[in-house]
Design a protein around this nucleic acid. Structure first.
Lengths: 231, 231
DNA sequence: ACATTCATGTCACACAGCTGTCAGAGCGGG
DNA sequence: CCCGCTCTGACAGCTGTGTGACATGAATGT
């Protein structure tokens, strides 16, 4: 897993539009996405960037998707690397063969990007149990997403649902400024007709909830807020 | 994006009443709206007016909506152009196919104009974000645009928004002289009716903020300023 | 079903920090 | 030594943010 809780994803897909589509959706879902169109390059990239998950098109240039998957399974280093296979054909045969080669999941085109993201996250949760109980921490704040619990310096912290999501987002992307609008888009399920200033209030509530000690939610005037130790 | 922050929108819809409805609502929401009923004409218009967003009906004359979308994605120039698909049918199949072709969002008729506007704005926000964190540095000054933070020789530097933008511009173009007028145009959002001398003051404030040590902001008499190590 | 508690979004007001401008002093080149 | 340009400190106005209170609505417990 990358820093900041960002999940690294490698997309191996030679249909550029689809690759772009995937990149876009997975980026939005909090993945760091690398793409390649070539099977051999994929194997090299996997060594280099050590992704947490691979999306593998069935039919690609160079070494075929199915072959890439086999090789991954053969090497101890990558034997457990989660792989989702993509195929243009929806026949059961392919599905069976795909899973036989060691793919963890198998999605037929056309697919729904949302569903694919959901499956990817489900797979990550399964294959990296520490993800289901994601342990986020920064500057003395600890969040256990499994227990849905937050502590600061060991002391329990009480936050409401929205405050929790806000804090979680900051913990996943520390030391990075988000505008009020971005936070609304990300943290609020239905962001329509919600005042920007509401974010201020929520930030304050999180601050209060976190109790005394250094204020870790830095206000960046005219920009937004960030989770940050340094004042 | 057009001047005045007006967002250009192209509506491709052959049901005139609906097109009018859309035009009306999006105009109210601050969009400059162009409409067409024909897919082929849409492609031409997109080249001409370079919209920031396209609303694309599924079923239209000429080249179908789905095909228009595919072509947009194929061309590098328009590959990232945000597209929202509209369809009369609400079936998941269409939704999947719509997204597969590269549409960024998909709205089924009948739709709520308000919601559509909200989604359009959300999409625009997401498609033109400053997500990448630039690391700028020069002569001991470091700027992390993601964290919105500046250091000099490791020491945190406190600057206001305008000073930040000024410094950022210098860091992006070091060792290069900019006139006061140029700096006003670049750094100031609304540069109307602002005195040239004001730049002097801002430069000074940045100098002060950068603390002791060599003055990296070189005054070029009767020309302007530049970020420069050599005195 | 009801009562109660909790969470949430909004507002009004207070406050702090930022911003643009000015006038006078300082500086450098010719 | 003079002229033109730049630096500096002060200041008033303004924008953006912090804060407490409140009404509403959802969730919870009885």
């Amino acid at each position: 897993m990358g820093k900041n809780g960002l999940k690294r994803l490698l997309v191996v897909e030679d249909d550029r539009p689809i690759a772009e589509l995937l990149k876009h959706h997975f980026s939005s879902a909090g993945f760091t996405v690398t793409t390649t169109t070539d099977g051999d390059e994929a194997l090299i990239l996997i060594d280099e960037i050590k992704p947490d998950l691979v999306l593998l098109d069935w039919m690609i240039e160079g070494t075929s998707g199915i072959e890439v998957c086999r090789r991954l399974r053969r090497s101890a280093h990558t034997a457990k690397l989660p792989v989702i296979m993509l195929t243009a054909r929806g026949e059961e045969d392919d599905r069976v063969r795909g899973l036989e080669t060691g793919a963890d999941d198998f999605v037929a085109k056309p697919f729904s990007p949302k569903e694919l993201v959901a499956r990817a996250n489900a797979l990550l949760r399964r294959s990296q149990p520490n993800l289901i109980g994601e342990k986020l921490s920064y500057g003395g704040i600890e969040m256990d997403t499994a227990a849905h619990r937050v502590r600061r310096d060991g002391q329990p912290v009480n936050v409401g649902p929205t405050e929790y999501r806000l804090l979680q987002h900051f913990l996943r992307h520390p030391e990075r400024v988000f505008s009020r609008q971005q936070l609304l888009d990300i943290v609020w399920p239905h962001n329509e007709e919600i005042e920007l200033r509401t974010v201020d209030v929520l930030v304050r509530r999180v601050r209060v909830a976190l109790g005394p000690g250094p204020d870790l939610l830095r206000t960046v005037r005219s920009e937004g807020y960030s989770l940050d130790q340094a004042k």
